[in-house]
Design a protein around this nucleic acid. Structure first.
Length: 264
DNA sequence: TACTCATGAGCAA
DNA sequence: TGCTCCTGAGTAG
């Protein structure tokens, strides 16, 4: 489930199983021909920024973005790894670990300038908190300078990075904010509330590996149908007021919200 | 077997 | 705004 928390988990996994080792990098599918530029080199760093994963090697970086279909398959092996299954764009191999990448939107080798350029396009990431960078102030400033609806701003990776369609819907419900309220009409206090709630929920996502947004369900592993307040619950009763959860398209993405709890 | 859908985003018009 | 990239899971028949 590729929202930001997944990418941070993947970065952690690469640090744990692959960092400091020379990796054999190949493209079983044949579409990542630049694998030859970095294969055999030592993995020096593994970092997530928003939904981007950057793997650092002596001669450059691999940037990976899962997009909507992308997936990782990790495995440990004793003697030989299993043969790749399906359309494996890239295979990362160390002595005892293998990571197969399937269906990413982006998998490319970039230099330091490209790495810095990619990072410069991203807004603050709630999972990378550095007080010196004033992330919260940047986020609030970007929102309050525009008449774009808050539901759209939360999906804009240059405003806040790592949020996707699930967290967007759930954060706005938890804040009782209409997705259609424009950025300049959302108070500083409400924006700070969304930010800190995102920090909280996404950290849970990193720890648990799934998106949990209901405070009464933070323990255990609830079924998908019980996991959310509004996401994918169109037509069902709102868990707070009982009104039907609404669904409509916003910038061609499905937006779920409760018209009664999240008034304009 | 065929069809639909998805947690994303770049690009042209 | 709509098209396109791209893969696999789920569902209907």
């Amino acid at each position: 489930m590729p929202e930001g928390h997944t990418v941070h988990r993947t970065a952690n996994r690469f640090r744990k199983d692959f960092a400091g080792r020379e990796l054999n990098i190949s493209s079983p599918q044949g579409r990542f021909i630049d694998a030859v530029l970095v294969t055999g080199q030592q993995l020096e760093s593994s970092e997530a920024f928003g939904k981007h994963l950057f793997l650092g090697f002596p001669s450059g970086f691999i940037r990976i973005h899962l997009g909507i279909y992308g997936k990782w398959r990790f495995a440990e092996f004793k003697a030989e790894p299993k043969e790749p299954v399906g359309q494996v764009r890239a295979r990362f191999l160390s002595e005892h670990f293998v990571a197969d990448l399937v269906g990413p939107t982006a998998c490319e080798v970039i230099d330091l300038a490209g790495y810095q350029l990619q990072k410069s396009k991203l807004g603050p990431d709630p999972l990378r908190i550095d007080p010196a960078d004033q992330e919260l102030e940047r986020f609030i400033g970007r929102c309050q300078r525009t008449k774009t609806p808050i539901g759209q701003l939360l999906m804009d990776q240059s405003v806040i990075s790592g949020i996707g369609n699930v967290y967007r819907a759930e954060l706005l419900f938890r804040a009782r904010l209409s997705p259609f309220r424009t950025g300049n009409e959302v108070s500083e206090q409400d924006l700070a509330g969304i930010w800190f709630d995102a920090v909280k929920l996404m950290k849970i996502g990193v720890t648990k590996g799934i998106m949990l947004t209901r405070d009464d369900h933070l323990r255990g592993m609830p079924q998908l149908k019980d996991r959310y307040f509004v996401y994918k619950r169109e037509g069902l009763p709102c868990r707070n007021c009982g009104n039907e959860v609404s669904l409509q398209l916003m910038s061609s993405r499905k937006l779920y919200w409760c018209t009664s709890c999240q008034k304009l």
